[in-house]
Amino acid sequence: MRSHDGTGAQKGRSGSTSLIAGGAPPYEPASAGGRASTYEIVRRKHPWRFAAAIVVLLLLALLLYGAANAHQLHWSVTGHYLFNRAVLVGVLRTLEITAAAMMLGLALGVIFGIMRSSHNPVLRGVAWLYVWAFRGTPIILQLFLWFNLALIFPRIDIPGIAHGTTVNIITPFLAALLGFGINEGAYMSEIIRGGLLSVPPGQTEAALSLGASHAWTTRRIVLPQAFRVILPAIGNDTLQMLKLTSLAAFISFNELFGTTESIYYANSEVIELLLVAGAWYLVASSVLSVVQYYVERKFGRGFQRGRQQALVERVVLRAMARLRTRAV
């Protein structure tokens, strides 16, 4: 009787989940009761899953068939422009402005994120104002503001940095960089503030009790730990920025989208060229996703998360240590 009950319980389980399907009967020693020492496991069938998959695949096939046979769509034009020189330059510029804007955003984010966590109410207030203004208005508006800066400041005179007429200094690239970078900085400062908050206050206290300065504590103790939390969010923002930069076309910065746009203005192959741009955006974001996955796996996951992940932790911590051993 006992061994019968054991089998029954196991069948019940393998019915609801196949996780333990391969294992021995969990509640009985193999020889107990003198019955067979192993039982065949019958997996539950999922006919509806199969049916749903068929339906979805059929619909997808119809869609592809439709696209392939759309006689208005000139696939050859798309293919031709995919590696067009101007398009490739556009891809490069998209990557450039994305990287530059993210770097500016990160720098501003660290500064304002630390300011927002400061004890000084003035610093906190200014940082709040920055986030409030730049998160609260559309990015396209901000781009146009920077692009048209000459309307209110005809000349720029910053000793040691820039002298001259604003029109000459604020190129489309610079306007785009300021627009995207400063906007990103507002979001990034919130991300960094969250990261800083995620570090237990005991860490700061321990560092201070060793006689450390606030600056050292932030740099060596708090930021490296906050980084783990911050990293996935930076990855997401980078992916988003990649596509957002297409708006720079509206301030005549010829990145990928703007380039394809000016080509189809000339040859009227609108959809074909949009597909060219789309393909490149997909390639770039796929590459970034893979990079993000590896970077996060290296720095982010499993840190301090229970005992089962000790191995992952060890790998992550070793990697982090390798980066740090030079200093200590």
Partner: peptide, 10 residues
């Protein structure tokens, strides 16, 4: 400290 407060990344 009660909760040690070791630096986890070192």
């Amino acid at each position: 400290f009660q909760h040690f407060n070791l630096f986890p990344h070192f």
